[in-house]
């Protein structure tokens, strides 16, 4: 345990980055706990850990190039690795407490009451300069593109990073495409005006408007898992024909929803088409 009055916080930040990198993170960064003004009250770092000073963000564990190349789209539905960053966040929180003697808590992944997250990990990644918001929704790292993030709130006053400038999205290719065609690859692959989830506007090389239909997206991204289970359960219970009800209970759809719930790797996302066409991080999604 390090005596606090001897800690060089810049050195400590480098040490944390090295540990995170060695443990599988591709990026890490720090946001000031006071920078979350845009988050509603109750969802800021100090609401989770009193006297919070910093939010350490780790990112990585994105699908491999081979995953993106598989012609079987169901492959990526059942092999996602997002849990790795949450596991790393728990490890980093413990490391901060044991090594530096400051309080630390990993932000729980997923959602809680009212399907709201405990704290926006996307916002933390954005503020920590680990990536920036995109037209497609996910926070994109300028080099690696789409990845998963974990966040650790701590009372340790680490030097804060700044949001990326310029942001990772829109990429120059997307700006050119928008100027020529009025759309980008992600908007084009899932257009809100034609039954999709995305819309937006680019002005002076930056996106100035963004529309994301989260409800519609959820019906596609989470075909299985809790929302799928609730849907199929309701339909099954309301089926008056006993024989048909039995068939529904043993159907592939019902079985898959249970598989996805008990083996939660399936839970994270079952549509990645907006990311598939994104030029940011494209080189990491292609190999020989």
């Amino acid at each position: 345990m390090t005596a606090q009055n001897k800690i060089d916080f810049a050195t400590a930040k480098s040490e944390l980055a090295a540990i995170a990198g060695k443990s599988g993170a591709l990026v890490s960064g720090v946001a000031s706990a006071g920078a979350f003004d845009d988050a509603p009250e109750g969802y800021r770092p100090a609401d989770i850990l009193p006297h919070a000073k910093s939010v350490l963000v780790v990112g990585g564990a994105q699908p491999r190039a081979g995953d993106w190349q598989s012609p079987n789209y169901q492959h990526m539905e059942v092999t996602t690795t997002s849990d790795r960053m949450q596991t790393l966040a728990l490890k980093m929180a413990r490391f901060i407490e044991d090594r530096f003697s400051y309080y630390a808590v990993a932000v729980p992944a997923g959602v809680d009451r009212g399907q709201q997250p405990f704290m926006s990990i996307s916002m933390a990644a954005d503020l920590a300069g680990c990536g920036s918001k995109s037209l497609a929704g996910p926070v994109l790292h300028p080099e690696f593109g789409f990845m998963y993030y974990g966040a650790i709130i701590t009372t340790m006053p680490l030097p804060a990073d700044k949001p990326l400038d310029p942001p990772a999205c829109p990429a120059p290719e997307c700006v050119r495409m928008y100027e020529a065609e009025g759309t980008t690859p992600c908007l084009n692959t899932c257009p809100a005006k034609a039954g999709g989830c995305l819309d937006g506007r680019i002005e002076d090389g930056r996106f100035t408007e963004r529309q994301y239909d989260a409800t519609r997206c959820a019906t596609r991204v989470q075909n299985y898992w809790v929302p799928g289970f609730q849907k199929v359960l309701g339909a099954t219970l309301q089926e008056p024909d006993a024989e048909k009800q039995k068939m529904m209970l043993f159907s592939s759809m019902f079985s898959r929803t249970l598989w996805s719930m008990t083996y939660s790797n399936v839970a994270q996302g079952q549509c990645a088409e907006c990311m598939r066409v994104c030029p940011v991080g494209y080189e990491y999604r292609t190999k020989n």
């Binding site: 850990l49 009193p50 929180a93 309080y103 630390a104 808590v105 990993a106």
Partner: peptide, 9 residues
């Protein structure tokens, strides 16, 4: 973690 014990949530 010790931090988790202190969370008001």
């Amino acid at each position: 973690t010790a931090g988790a014990w202190r969370s008001p949530n």
